[in-house]
Write a protein that binds this DNA or RNA. Structure first.
Lengths: 116, 116
DNA sequence: TGGTCGTGCAACTATTTAGTTGCAGATTAC
DNA sequence: GTAATCTGCAACTAAATAGTTGCACGACCA
């Protein structure tokens, strides 16, 4: 399923965006491996990874006593789809707005229903 | 300039995404006009609008005693650009990951440096 | 079997954030 | 001029979040 709110909220934190970037470029890693590169404890990193996993963006994979977090391709694609969608919607609306302003430059300065 | 952190953080809140959607579809509005449609006070809405404006996504425009918040096309395009960028990056990495997994299906289950 | 290492749980603190209310000051309308 | 209406500031509360530490349990290795 992957819930839009959870995804955008997860993406709202800069540390989590960095983590996601890292894992999508370097492949699956454990919290213990990641932690030294961040100015926080392993547990703090674990919490961020758990949040990302909760949003469906990562999948924890157990290997013996280790747990590697892997980017979840499907969820990432879905999230990317939302972003593209939102972007397109903005573009359309902005284009419409632009046309509107060009064709009637005064309209935005109107103060009332043309009281004449 | 418009700072990426501020934008993603602003987008992290569902109320703010709704506000942005609304303003980009219905055009500029005041906090007082918007507030009745949200389960919160005018002041709470003002705070959200201020946050969005702080991220550069909205521009407040004074008209007499009213202040209408207008979607800031340029900043929105820039943000859309980031999103498209991130999306593309994910896509590339995910594609690479996919290729890797297909060409060497065992690799992710390997537990050591290929002792065999 | 005992030592080492990694994960996971829990309790706790501090900061940020979402929300509230009350009120002052400016502007418009009558 | 006065009343109504809107913004903007400030103080405050409550809840969520980012971070910490300590410890127990399970897995690996010698």
């Amino acid at each position: 399923m992957t819930d839009e709110d959870a995804v955008f909220s997860a993406l709202g934190d800069p540390t989590r965006r960095r983590l996601l970037d890292r894992l999508s470029s370097d492949g699956p890693m454990t919290a213990t491996e990641l932690a030294p590169d961040y100015p926080m404890s392993r547990q703090a990193v674990v919490k961020h990874l758990t949040t990302l996993a909760g949003a469906g963006l990562l999948v924890p994979e157990r290997q013996g006593r280790d747990v590697r977090y892997r980017v979840h391709a499907e969820a990432m694609s879905e999230a990317a789809g939302w972003m593209a969608d939102i972007t397109a919607r903005w573009d359309r609306r902005l284009a419409a707005l632009d046309r509107q302003v060009r064709s009637n430059p005064q309209s935005r300065l109107d103060k009332g229903p043309a009281a004449g």
